[in-house]
Design a protein around this nucleic acid. Sequence first.
DNA 1: GAAAAAATACCCCAAACAGGGGATTTTTTC
DNA 2: GAAAAAATCCCCTGTTTGGGGTATTTTTTC
Lengths: 208, 208
Amino acid sequence: MIRIALADDHKMFAKGIAGLLEEEDDLRVDGIFSNGKDLLDFLKTHEVDVILTDMNMPVLDGAGVLEAIKKTSPKTKAIVLSMYHDEAIYNRSMKLGADAYVLKNSDPDELIYTVREVFEGNYLPSYSKLQQQTESDEYTDYYKLKFQLSKRETQILRMIKNGMTNKEIAASLNLSLFTVEAHRKKIHSKLKVSSVSELIRKAIDIGI
Amino acid sequence: MIRIALADDHKMFAKGIAGLLEEEDDLRVDGIFSNGKDLLDFLKTHEVDVILTDMNMPVLDGAGVLEAIKKTSPKTKAIVLSMYHDEAIYNRSMKLGADAYVLKNSDPDELIYTVREVFEGNYLPSYSKLQQQTESDEYTDYYKLKFQLSKRETQILRMIKNGMTNKEIAASLNLSLFTVEAHRKKIHSKLKVSSVSELIRKAIDIGI
DNA sequence: GAAAAAATACCCCAAACAGGGGATTTTTTC
DNA sequence: GAAAAAATCCCCTGTTTGGGGTATTTTTTC
């Protein structure tokens, strides 16, 4: 039996995940919390095998949880739940000792699989696994078909969504600023938007 | 027994909500779908009392679901689940015949309460109810305390997040463009961000 | 009712974005 | 291997943001 505790400030989502995991015979959710502090308090008196934590939480965020866990109960495995396909957040999580990084809009089976593998100690986190999570998502596929974004466009859209400027994107991909601007114009026309804010919103909606 | 069917493209979330509702003795979830079309297909052969639907879905979105439902099974009540505290989306939902509009980051009890009231025919949707949903959220409270955003700042942040430009916001609130810019600068310094994209992301993180 | 906070409005300047065009090279597809 | 699509780069122009000020009026708070 794999004992689990989780923290996520979106209560509906937290309860949701818990129900999902409880359906599995070998998984048991012992605690559901909506911030990191409540989770850590719980862990003072209860032992679990795996914790799932969101990064953005009030009072004590995911980073704080990871740090504390690695100190106080190093045997406990930690899986980060994140809304963002963002390399910077991914790297920060790993540095803080996370054992896995799962996107919130990935398939529920993906999460269950990861919990088991992490528990067994067989899971080797990598950024390419994160790539796969978004790529295997059938709905992203649908939108890819609907909006016909090319690979480069998808990549750049993701970077814009993650808060990067055209200049930063150009530097990061070794492209001319003009090229990035050209891609951006194409993205705008394909997604029928005309500003960053609309763009980001659309990107979130279609789960890119 | 209130019979429910729901559609949301975030599978984890959909399964989550379902589990949450199933915990109540008087609620039963007969179908969980990840797009509007699958939900409508189900409704051809099954009768339910209340449907819950996300607005942003592939294949057939929430608007399409509402339109179809009101035609084919007008007795079925429809509740819109939305990520966005956005008056435009709210109004569109209502125009299309939604019986209620519930935010995804509101309290689970809020949703359960709304399902029951809508089923009983006692629920009168209003935009002020939407206001309450965000305001009663304890975590938004936490962030309000942390970042000390004023009312006006919160309002403007929400409008920026919803894709409006300073000019549009100024026009909509009957303010000078300078004023909106001034507020925006304050918001930036309070949230420690320096661009729209970071701003929107932060707004989503703190659930505004 | 005085002090503090919020909301309002304005100026300046530099940086970033948005949209219009055109053109070449590389890669994919059939 | 020809045609189509994707990716690259450049120019021009106007709009929108971002950050630095200052200052007055309105509202809140104690």
